[in-house]
Amino acid sequence: MLRIAIATIAVALGATAVVAQSDVIAQRREIMKGVGAATKDPGGMLKGETPFDLAKVQKALATYQDAAQKMPTLYPENSKTGGETTAAPKIWEDMAGFKDHFAKFAADAQKASAAIKDEATFKANFPAVLKNCGGCHETYRVKKS
């Protein structure tokens, strides 16, 4: 009986480990999709397509900081492939560098958040934050399909 119980627990644990693994991939992709969606408003404002709105800009910057905090924990060794991840193998070869990129992304977003008060300060400070996106994707991301 005890044996069966242990076996059941082991299977259950194993199953959660598998779930957790595809879960992390879904979670981190969801977070990054959120970052992309949050960039729509300020992106339109930079192009002059949508009127400047300070609240929306600050909301995007808050989303970035939140993402930068959560993302680095979502790359366990067993999540290199699957779930349509576009994570590059480089992440696991250079986890420290990957984390540094997120730290810089958060710091830049925070700095911009403090500096941006109106449209002029937005146009002066926001593009530097957006440099982080391509900068990180160039090294740590690769489209596999």
């Binding site: 992309g36 192009k47 590059a88 957006l130 996106c133 990180c136 994707h137 160039e138 690769v142």
Partner: peptide, 22 residues
């Protein structure tokens, strides 16, 4: 716009070897 800023219409930033091209 992509060739100027590296952003797709969905505001995904292109990466990989397209980064240096941008």
């Amino acid at each position: 716009e992509l060739l100027k800023t590296g952003f797709t219409p969905e505001y995904d930033a292109v990466g990989g070897s397209m980064g240096p091209v941008i």
